[in-house]
Design a binder for these strands. Structure first.
Lengths: 230, 230
DNA sequence: GTGATTTCTCTACGGCTGTAGTGGATGAAT
DNA sequence: ATTCATCCACTACAGCCGTAGAGAAATCAC
């Protein structure tokens, strides 16, 4: 409006602004509402800007997904350690339950918009292989952390257990955000109990706590046997 | 094309055809690909037909969702009983694990398209309250069955347990269909083990098998304490 | 200063979208 | 047989879409 200051002295990387606005539009209006012109308007940029920075629609989606990957990585860290070094994953059941409950609870309560945008892009990645690659990369990080924690707990099948624990979290989040459970999201305490129950079911029958073994991957190759779908 | 036969002697309810085509388009091209004209073309209907049966876009989405609810109800029954009366839910852990594994495995293997369309509509229901109502109704049925089974197993908190079991299933399905686990979906055997582990974790500490108690809801009111979000 | 080069703004265009209205064919009622 | 009501095929229209390109502005090299 008004004077349209040129040369933008404070320039927080136009692409970041475009990515943030694209994510917001994805949440508020869905895939049909994410258009070049809508991003221009929503971000207060001169008309045509988005069309310049992301010439095609596929490029625009990639900008949005890249931005979201950065955002998610940034909010994963603080939930993990309140001020310590990043790789401090807990290695006891109670600590893991606390961590997982904190992450899921935060996602349901404060991260609703982010999750909706993520689901929207996951669905789109079903049809666009360029997006699929970026999406899978982010997911692998998350799952890797879970597998590591399960292995530290002495799981007999950390790959499967880690994957299913993450799947449970995703299911709870989806149900509470976009599914039929949106009206009555579980409390953080409920989530914690749920995690504890899952872990106890997974670890029943294995050594409850292999004493002097802070970390490490079990050598058994569980899961990942079906290389591709028919 | 050709002669455009009028009066349609075989008329399998135009709305069914439109609904099926809408679902297919949702899967193949996403929300942006679902348009009145695309349905006409995809269903082989004369141009303008979809626009007549579903005057607005919202109406078109409702037709699609209604059709999908019917389809899901129809495929839920056969997985439940191969030829018996419908209300025969299993009431022992092994039977439940078999049933749940069968449903999830079928959804991942053969029901991929249906699930993608469902996710697409779930996201849209985030923004359209008319869809939300229909969507929630279908979800409540599913969850009710799970709660009933958990209660029959002697769960101390069937509401929470049923909900979390369904959430786990949804998570596994989403991950294997639209998430980062699409390339290596779990085998049916893996799923079965996962269900068994979850159930054992949930039932640990309660009477392992209350002998003569075929069914019934626990009187304790678990979950559902948070009436609405902020 | 002056010219070259990059960075961005603005506009144009063909195509597709949602939606409403018009008029013809169909079948029922009289 | 004629009239009427219903159902449906078709067309029109205004608006928005993705994308490309022309040209202004800013930056930089000298």
């Amino acid at each position: 409006m008004t004077t349209a200051k040129r040369t933008s002295p404070d320039r927080p990387d136009r692409l970041v602004l475009i990515g943030d606005t694209a994510i917001r539009l994805l949440v508020e209006r869905g895939m049909r509402g994410l258009t070049h012109r809508a991003v221009d308007e929503g971000a207060g940029l001169p008309p045509g800007s988005t069309s310049y920075y992301a010439r095609t629609r596929a490029a625009l989606l990639e900008v949005a997904l890249a931005r979201m990957t950065v955002l998610e990585a940034g909010e994963f860290a603080p939930a993990l350690a309140d001020g310590e070094s990043p790789p401090a994953l807990p290695s006891d059941s109670a600590g893991i339950a606390d961590l997982v409950a904190a992450i899921v609870d935060a996602a349901i309560r404060d991260g609703r918009d982010q999750k909706i945008a993520r689901y929207e892009l996951a669905l789109e990645a079903t049809r666009r292989s360029e997006l699929r690659a970026v999406y899978d990369e982010a997911g692998a990080m998350f799952r890797g952390a879970a597998v590591g924690m399960l292995a530290a707990l002495g799981s007999s099948a950390p790959e499967r257990h880690g994957r299913f624990l993450v799947a449970w979290c995703e299911g709870v989040m989806f149900d509470s955000i976009a599914g039929s459970g949106w009206a009555t999201p579980p409390s953080r305490a409920d989530i914690r109990v749920g995690v504890t129950e899952i872990l106890s079911g997974m670890l029943a029958g294995s050594a409850p706590r292999p004493p002097g073994r802070p970390f490490g991957n079990a050598p058994t190759s569980d899961m990942g046997d079906s290389p591709d779908r028919s």
